[in-house]
Write a protein that binds this DNA or RNA. Structure first.
Lengths: 222, 222
DNA sequence: TTATCTGCCTAACGTTTGTTAGGCAGCGTT
DNA sequence: AACGCTGCCTAACAAACGTTAGGCAGATAA
């Protein structure tokens, strides 16, 4: 199986490559990987299909580049919050969790085009693509596992793992229904963090998530 | 846009149609919809590609049939539990929730091949396919919304909707990592139900979810 | 001026895809 | 015996796909 590389290359910024990357991310998100043709993609950026091979060695490499950037956004957002909420301080666990949940959701939705691929099309991506992106994903997941392990010292590692996967499922699935918008994302973040920590039976919910723009019927799916 | 029908037809049971349906469900789950070719699919059931058009009018109709069956499993499982846990009795809300969570996860994993499509490939399915399956989906979601509304009378409808979507995300994403097996699924169901209701800070977790066969590194993705 | 590199285009290639028209063996019914 | 239905096959179709080889205008450097 041929390896697929995509990271770096030259000085990173050339307008052509960047425009292809952005258009590809958007199309992969809207239509999926296989159903996106290089000809349509090229038309988006005012090129012809063959021309894109000057910037990317293959369609697979394009997907790898999109996914790598997406996961890089997530890792950077995590690191930023981790710096502000170090484990040493005796900050309440609930607040540390809330900060990380908010950061995850913000990074996810602010860079939706690049990050959503990890939710929607990583599973069925070509094997070579998955292999190329997996180290970055494992890295991010390991940070969360460590964090939750610190926050829940009396839970077994297996429980921590399953709780993390459940939390990821709750957060990441919002890609498919939560209307983008800072206020909305932050409100959902508070709801999820509060629910994850205190449960839903707790009557002391915050200021409330009213007027949330949830796509309640699913009919908005295009 | 041409409509796509698939439900019923004859007496339902003819070996040919049924074998195609099962093989298609499995292949769609493993490889995705577009990346599954009718020729490979036909080979699975010992046929040639053209022969399948005797049973299904198109590839899209095949996908519709798979998704319809999957959602039917879910609805039936819900109804079964709803009959045993009627709203009238003053059963603790926590127990009603736990029963429904367990039923959802069991139905999901016991019929994995048919149900998983709703998680993994509904979003990017052809528009005609989504339109054909959407009524069944809306029906199932409405049952859950009603249930959660009864269980959480002091939450706003918007909050209920978002909590449901979060719960669905946590449950449904397990399709991608939870090893099938009755014991495992039931243990995860108890963990999720307990976490959703009491939160993760509650120290009185049940007998514990040890030895859970979670695919912790994600490396198991094929 | 000449040479080199960047960035894109044209035109084609081989392959794979969903789909269809027509045929044919086996069976039960009349 | 003739008929019709079921269930599958063969062979081909047009369309779309990812990818490649070669070329060409413009800028930059020697």
């Amino acid at each position: 199986m041929a390896t697929v590389t995509a990271s770096s290359g030259t000085t990173e910024s050339s307008s052509g490559r960047e425009r292809i990357l952005a258009a590809a991310a958007q199309r992969f998100l809207d239509a999926g990987y296989v159903e996106t043709s290089l000809r349509d993609l090229a038309a988006d950026v005012g090129m012809k299909a063959g021309s894109m091979y000057y910037h990317f060695e293959s369609k697979d490499a394009l997907l790898v580049a999109v996914l790598e950037r997406g996961m890089t956004f997530m890792v950077e957002a995590f690191e930023e919050v981790a710096a502000d909420h170090p484990p040493a301080e005796n900050e309440p666990a609930e607040e540390r969790l809330a900060a990380h949940v908010a950061a995850h959701l913000r990074a996810l939705h602010d860079n939706r085009a690049f990050t959503a691929g990890h939710v929607t099309l990583f599973r069925t991506a070509p094997a070579a693509v998955r292999a190329a992106v997996l180290p970055l994903r494992d890295d991010y997941e390991a940070r969360w596992t460590t964090l939750l392990g610190e926050l829940l010292p009396d839970r077994s590692p297996d429980e921590v793992t399953m709780l993390r996967l459940g939390l990821f499922g709750a957060m990441n699935s919002s890609i498919e229904w939560l209307d983008t918008g800072r206020g909305t994302v932050d409100r959902f973040a508070r709801l999820v963090a509060g629910q994850f920590w205190h449960g839903v039976a707790d009557s002391t919910h915050g200021e409330g998530v009213t007027q949330a723009s949830a796509n309640t019927s699913g009919k908005g799916n295009r």
